[in-house]
Design a binder for these strands. Structure first.
Lengths: 223, 223
DNA sequence: CGCGTTACGTGAAGGTTTTCACAAAGGGGT
DNA sequence: ACCCCTTTGTGAAAACCTTCACGTAACGCG
């Protein structure tokens, strides 16, 4: 079962998203004791085309045996390795407001190997408190706190919009190279810092459009 | 400024998402007193290709004047009309937990014309309380509450995973035809009910992949 | 041990979305 | 009233992603 590095340098983002989808269903199959799965079976579970699965996997190597299918446990392990989710990732929250608090308490993160190791805010009333087992530190001392006490890999940004950019700058300064951005601000960041913007209102807009027009949109993207 | 119904029946979903993006930036321009904008200027602000903007708009009609550009106020009004966001939408929350509470208190919704008019939970300790000005009702009486007291247009699902499907069923029963689903459950619903799934963990997985591989993904989808 | 069956891996075809490039059209100055 | 400049609207081309279809490999049964 050879390489795990991308063969060609350009993988469609959507393919990576589907990889996570496959992993999720493989996890279930694995827990059910299923040892082998064909692209057809997995495709049914995931709601995609079987050829799609084979193509997506082919970006990263050969994982199946012809005539049989894919070994569930091995493929799952490979996918996790490819996604980088074969180990725990540490999250650092900036902005302990309504949303931030909910994120800290959100159990799904931990279930998937994402653990908050730090939290920051500027409000003196919040700094020093413990939320869901995480101590809230002063946002102004982020760099020092990260270095001396609670390092983390991914920054989670849930501040007020007007503080978003400076908070992001501080994250970068502290050495973070990936940010999950819950604010509606388009962040300006140096190259090499990865950002994913989460904006639920976009989805609401989409629903409004669908209700208004009776869904004449095409693609049905996963997640 | 002619029709607003789609010319051809199939509009790419991604184009509708971009429409919301354009509207957001037009809103800003409008508040700055800008009267006219060219596709080039707007494209720069939105981070997309100018031809893309013209194509997207062309799905719905002709809104610009050659040699000049687009009238900001008018185009904004048109886009809102197209998206259906020219009036307030009423939201109904199911599941007043950590996330639900944060959503009720989230100010961005109201700012964009989305107002919670109802909230439901099964926990007797929560039922009857007031969260962010919204009375929490018993989830089992959803149908009645909706009809007699607090109708709403879009259901927002933030329950525990195991209750998600039955809560969704109840929403449909109560006449709701659009659901914003924050649970990781793939809902089974009758045709004609629109669902948008919001799963932040997908984005985290994507960040993991990027960090691990140094971003070799292609597309850069907005929001 | 060979043959049939199954299902992967992949080139080629098909479909969709993005970008290019240009004709056509409106505005404004002279 | 005409001409020039700007920028739209849009076919055509390019890029991209998905699906098809088949060669090929592996297993297992007789």
């Amino acid at each position: 079962m050879p390489p795990t590095k991308p063969k060609s340098p350009k993988i469609p983002k959507i393919a990576v998203i589907r990889l996570a989808l496959y992993a999720k269903h493989l996890e279930i199959l694995h827990s059910e004791g299923v040892k082998l799965v064909s692209s057809l079976e997995l495709a049914d579970l995931c709601g995609v085309n079987p050829a799609q699965i084979r193509k997506d996997l082919a970006y990263f190597g050969q994982f199946g045996t012809r005539g049989l299918g894919y070994p569930v446990a091995e493929l799952l392990a490979e996918l996790k390795r490819i996604m980088g989710t074969d180990h725990v990732w540490r999250l650092g929250l900036v902005g302990v407001g309504n949303l931030g608090r909910a994120l800290l308490r959100h159990t799904q993160f931990a279930e998937q190997g994402f653990v908050f190791t730090a939290a920051f805010d500027r409000n003196p009333e919040v700094v020093g408190t413990l939320v869901s087992g995480v101590k809230v530190s002063n946002a102004e001392q982020m760099k020092r706190v990260v270095r001396e006490r609670s390092p983390f890999d991914i920054g989670v940004l849930a501040t007020q919009p007007k503080e978003a950019q400076s908070a992001a700058d501080r994250l970068v300064e502290a050495g973070v190279s990936a940010i999950l951005n819950f604010t509606p601000v388009k962040l300006k960041l140096p190259a090499g810092v990865y950002v994913e913007n989460v904006d639920f209102t976009v989805r609401l807009h989409l629903l409004c459009y669908s209700i208004t027009h009776g869904s004449d949109v095409t693609q049905e993207h996963p997640t």
